[in-house]
Design a protein around this nucleic acid. Structure first.
Lengths: 230, 230
DNA sequence: ACTGTAAGGATCGTTCAACAATCCTTCAAG
DNA sequence: CTTGAAGGATTGTTGAACGATCCTTACAGT
């Protein structure tokens, strides 16, 4: 392969069109993540297929994708529902986050490439908080941790993290007060980023561990309170 | 809920039947993992739907599942193919394995629950090696690392690991000599298990790191040699 | 030899209609 | 208040259909 053509292989992704099922999955995914469909909601095939003007078969392919991403649950002969996370799910998710995020920074001894994205996420969060845009703060916070995971340099870890955080959003949007949950961590994000800027990965890792434990407890407490039946 | 009925909730999983699409996916998954379908093979819808006596629509649902698991690749208007891993994929997979497996044991200070499963995997591997059953040795080896991951106590990590190892099998079965690849690590598995038995998680972690680096290099070397075009 | 074009067939993408299987609701009976 | 039965609604799965896209082959043209 010549040097010129090899420069084009990065453009393959742009060229890959998407099927209808994937586009439908995208629509539903964003709808779920923004809380338009609340956890527990049943997604009836006829209704949604009609609304999106696609056939039931195509919609079912999209359902299968989202079920595999754990955003939907599929009960045979009963249909698909927006996933309702249990407290155990939240705990499990934070177990994964601690494992991945801490490992992503622990062995760093110098500022990682992509640190600018991390700092950008912090300042974006600060700007959102300045304007009392708590929802924007939430997304900035999520992006912060996505960048943390990207320091592993692994595409699969990136995807894992994307899925995990998408699941977490299922919890965020059933809670009414995003400020209460996201604001306390803005300062900590800055501190963690500062550690990484100094090349102190181990320090950042321990801070992240405490951070995630706190967030987990706060979330589990609020979640159990909000959904005492479980 | 009474005490008696609560004892039955564990049986819910048994009760959950499976759809045809999932069963089809299971069949194809095992066929791929055992090398019946080699990487690069195209899976034509008509042929396979006919062979399995299911409709194309149902088969396509199964394809979507397996594509999401990265066992198949889907090219629009061209069909689905058994995934062909690149060297970069192998490197990425081992990056995930190092991250997960090392983190799973690093913080252990006493023998974890489930250590018996680990020891069983070791002895099963030894028994298979004794009988020159190199394929059996390979599966025992894989199970060993699956148990390692299970020490995280996270269902999501288990699933991640299951997927990662399923991907790796795509490489194992294009190589002709499973003995050459799996046998050297039998002893090391035993040593790692011994460390964990002594409660030396950190020691096991460093051994695992070296182990996985060696395996990665060996595999990448053999793979690049086998598939020089990439 | 290399590039371009055209035709044909094969396969995929998607839709639609149909029917059996299952579930949910309602309501009556015990 | 529980049990059972009838009826309607939804899902599970199939088969056929048709346009769109791709692959192959053949046939020129430069």
């Amino acid at each position: 392969m010549s040097a010129e053509t090899s420069g084009l292989i990065a453009d393959r992704a742009l060229l890959g069109r998407t099927s209808t099922a994937e586009r439908v999955a995208d629509v539903l995914r964003t709808r779920i993540s923004e809380g338009f469909f609340s956890p527990g909601t049943r997604l009836a095939e006829d209704a949604i297929a009609g609304a999106l003007a696609v056939s039931r078969n195509t919609l079912r392919e999209a359902f299968r994708l989202l079920t595999h991403e754990r955003l939907l649950t599929h009960e045979l002969n009963r249909g698909v529902f927006v996933r309702v996370l249990t407290t155990d799910d939240v705990i499990d998710i934070y177990r994964v986050r601690k494992l991945v995020e801490c490992a992503a920074v622990r062995d760093l001894t110098e500022p990682p490439t992509g640190l600018d994205s991390l700092l950008a996420a912090v300042s974006d969060g600060a700007a959102a908080a300045e304007q009392a845009d708590w929802r924007g703060l939430g997304t900035a916070n999520i992006r912060f941790h996505q960048v943390i995971a990207s320091f592993t340099g692994s595409h699969r870890v990136d995807e894992l993290m994307r899925g995990i955080l998408a699941e977490l959003r299922l919890v965020f949007y059933v809670m009414q007060d995003p400020r209460w949950f996201h604001e306390p961590y803005l300062v900590r994000n800055g501190e963690i980023a500062a550690r990484l800027q100094e090349g102190d990965g181990a320090g950042a890792a321990t801070m992240l561990a405490v951070y995630l434990d706190d967030a987990e407890h706060q979330l589990v407490g609020a979640y159990a309170n909000h959904n005492p039946a479980e």
